[in-house]
Amino acid sequence: MNNKLAWLYMVPAALFLGVFLIYPTFSTIALSFFGPRSVEFVGLANYRSVLTSSAVLSALRNNLLWLAIMPTATVALGLVLAAILDRVRYEAIVKAIVFLPMSISFVGASVIWKFVYAYRPASRPQIGLLNAILARLGFEPIGWLAVRPWVNNLALITVGIWVWTGFCVVILSAAYKGVPRELVEAARIDGASEFQIFWHVILPHMRGTIAITFTTMVIYVLKIFDIVYVMTNGAFDTEVLASRMIKEMFGYWNYGSAAAIATLLLLLVIPFLTISMLRFLREER
């Protein structure tokens, strides 16, 4: 087997990865130690100002909020849906409906949900679905994207859940169906309830897949940008690190602090990188 040829096969990929991913990562880390126009060296000044900036800190807080809620919600929903859909004949249709939002861009999803969250004062007829339901039930309408800090961030996170649950359902459903029938039957014969079967027999069998799905969701959530950028652009305290970085870069023309924020994002992501790397290496062995 010819090794020279093998190198050739790798070269284009190596070039692309080097130019677009590897070199820029190091370069950005370096830029974070320079000034707004990348001319003068400022040491840790960018980090100091970024970590004491209340705007960045609340972006960080929001990222953590997204992190705490979205992966858990999507995976849990995915599991539950995988289990209950397995019991009906029209499973495929419902799966397709839940999965559909994945094909729409986040921009499209944001537009869709902007109309769901639309607000009109109580004296006017409601045009947003949620506020219309509230009004029908006799409540005052709520500015879903304005009330902070829980309501609007949760409203945005809901859009994320709406888009990504389909992904989890697909994967978890396949894993669910991969649990050997005999195990389930044996437990049923032993008199276990459906819930017990689910918890003690099925879930452990799916553990690997659940872990992978969860990690994938975590990685995507940390990078969340589109939903926030399109729906509120960070106004009303909904900023996340990714959108803040863009603001620093293009809105305030400060490359140094933008790079610092990006590096911060990378640091957040590294633990998960390590976990999946370790798991990956373990499996390859």
Binding site: V147, R148, A235, D237, K247, Y252
Partner: peptide, 18 residues
């Protein structure tokens, strides 16, 4: 400067109103 005039001042109004 933009960080204040098109940033913190605007969000400050929203903070206050909230």
């Amino acid at each position: 400067p933009a960080v204040v005039g098109s940033g913190a001042f605007w969000t400050g109004i929203l903070d206050y109103a909230s």
